[in-house]
Simulated scan of single mutants.
Amino acid sequence: MTDSPYLFRAADHELRQVSDRLKLREAISGFGIALRYQERAPDPAGADEADWCQTGHSIFILSGRIRYRFDSHTVEAGPGDMLHIPAGREHRHKPSVVGPDPVHYVLTEFG
């Protein structure tokens, strides 16, 4: 099998524990985009909300449910849902897990 700049094998990228509630597997492409698989667990205290993020993402939810809070509204997504959040302050967002189960998702990160 030929190596390709388009293929990122999961075995080549460790699933890292980033915080007590977040694990991620990340590959940085030569095209300036981070590709990530993430597992986010709910906050046992019920206050599961991260800091504001202004990075752009395209997200595909594999399992569980996630909520994104924006300045103007809130959106919830579940298995099979896709989201695209542009970069920038006007699109800043805070993710949180909905319900008792972790959420598993794949995202690209840019700008």
Rank of each mutant, 00 (worst) to 15 (best):
Y105W: 02
T55W: 13
E49Q: 14
P44W: 11
P102Y: 04
L83A: 08
F31K: 08
Y37K: 02
S96A: 10
G46M: 05
I85R: 06
A11W: 10
H84M: 14
S63T: 07
P100R: 05
E39G: 00
I66V: 06
P86V: 06
H57Q: 13
S96Y: 01
T108Q: 12
Y68A: 05
E109D: 11
S29N: 02
L62N: 13
S72L: 13
W52F: 01
A45V: 10
H13A: 09
V103W: 00
L24G: 03
R21H: 14
H104C: 03
D12A: 05
D101K: 08
T2C: 08
H84C: 15
L83G: 11
M1N: 13
R67T: 03
A27R: 02
G64N: 07
D20Y: 07
H57G: 04
H73A: 13
G56N: 12
P102G: 03
T74F: 06
I28A: 12
G99D: 15
G111C: 14
V103L: 01
D48Q: 04
F8I: 08
T55P: 08
W52K: 06
A27T: 06
R21I: 12
Y68K: 06
Y37D: 03
D3G: 01
E49P: 06
A27P: 03
K94Y: 06
S19E: 04
H104N: 12
G78M: 04
S29D: 02
H13C: 05
L62G: 10
L24S: 09
G78W: 01
D3K: 04
I59D: 07
I61T: 04
A34V: 08
